[in-house]
């Protein structure tokens, strides 16, 4: 009689032996492929949900991946777009600047020092462009100053808000002649009006004919108050400037001869 342990050994060795025989001869078995196919077909049924779950997870992962790729592609395209727009804007700006430079009428403001902000600025036209000292400088038809110094390719313009620039002016409504001067702080004043002047708030002030360089009728501003002040010992009435000195980018220089022509 064999005991339980021996039985276990015999069964175990039998199982191993069968396994080895199968391993060696399975490729030669006539129905090996059929059995494998059948088992695969049967096991495919319970495995179906797992397979579908796997496919779903892969699809989801691919979807996230493709979306991520799409986002990164959009970001790259946006950057490219911004870059191209910037390039386009720069080339447009350069072309515009060239046009302005080539134009005989318009001069660009190229420098305005903070220390003399309300007194002077530099433009990119000079002697070679036919400018001479004393010519009036306009912004959109309104007086902003007068050319003080001219070099070959640039000029310095003295602003109307400068205290050293005195411009002969006339009150259009009353035809009273006076002088416009600045205070170096961005404001302009009408000086030397007679005490019995009829000038009042809202009346227009423009240049008066005094010499060849200062043609008459160029708008300077309007009277903004009737209260009189004293500026450098002279009675002064505040004016509101027509030109915008805070947005001074382009100006044009004008001489009396040109105006007449």
């Amino acid at each position: 009689m064999i005991n339980e342990i021996e039985k276990q050994w015999i069964h175990g060795l039998c199982a191993i032996l069968i396994s080895l025989l199968l391993l060696v001869f399975s490729s030669q078995l006539k129905y090996g492929g059929v059995v494998a196919d059948m088992s695969t077909r049967i096991l495919n049924i319970p495995e179906y949900p797992v397979r579908k779950l796997r496919e779903g997870i892969i699809d989801l992962s691919m979807w996230f991946h493709s979306k991520d790729r799409l986002y990164s592609r959009v970001r790259i395209l946006e950057e490219e777009n911004t870059h191209l727009r910037t390039k386009l804007n720069i080339s447009e700006a350069v072309s515009l600047a060239r046009q302005i430079d080539q134009s005989s009428d318009i001069a660009r403001v190229t420098f305005r020092a903070p220390s003399s902000w309300w007194s002077e600025f530099r433009i990119n036209k000079g002697l070679s462009d036919g400018l001479v000292p004393g010519q009036l400088v306009l912004q959109d038809g309104a007086l902003v100053g007068r050319i003080a110094a001219v070099e070959k390719s640039f000029s310095w313009v003295e602003l109307i808000s400068s205290s050293s620039l005195l411009v002969p002016a006339v009150v259009e409504e009353t035809r009273e002649v006076a002088v416009v001067a600045g205070d170096d702080m961005g404001d302009i004043w009408l000086l030397y009006l007679p005490d019995n002047s009829n000038a009042s708030e809202g009346m227009t002030v423009s240049t008066a004919i005094v010499n060849d360089m200062s043609p008459p009728g160029i708008p300077i501003g309007t009277i903004s108050g009737t209260d009189s002040y004293y500026l450098g010992g002279a009675k002064a009435i505040p004016l509101e400037m027509k030109a915008d000195l805070s947005r001074l980018y382009e100006v044009s220089a004008i001489s009396y001869e040109e105006n007449v022509n």
Binding site: A15, I16, L23, S26, S39
Partner: peptide, 20 residues
Amino acid sequence: DIRWTGLIGLTSGIYVSGLI
């Protein structure tokens, strides 16, 4: 083995050996 490895008898032999 039939389902996955294709080497019929390999896993069964290993399992039985391991168990013994």
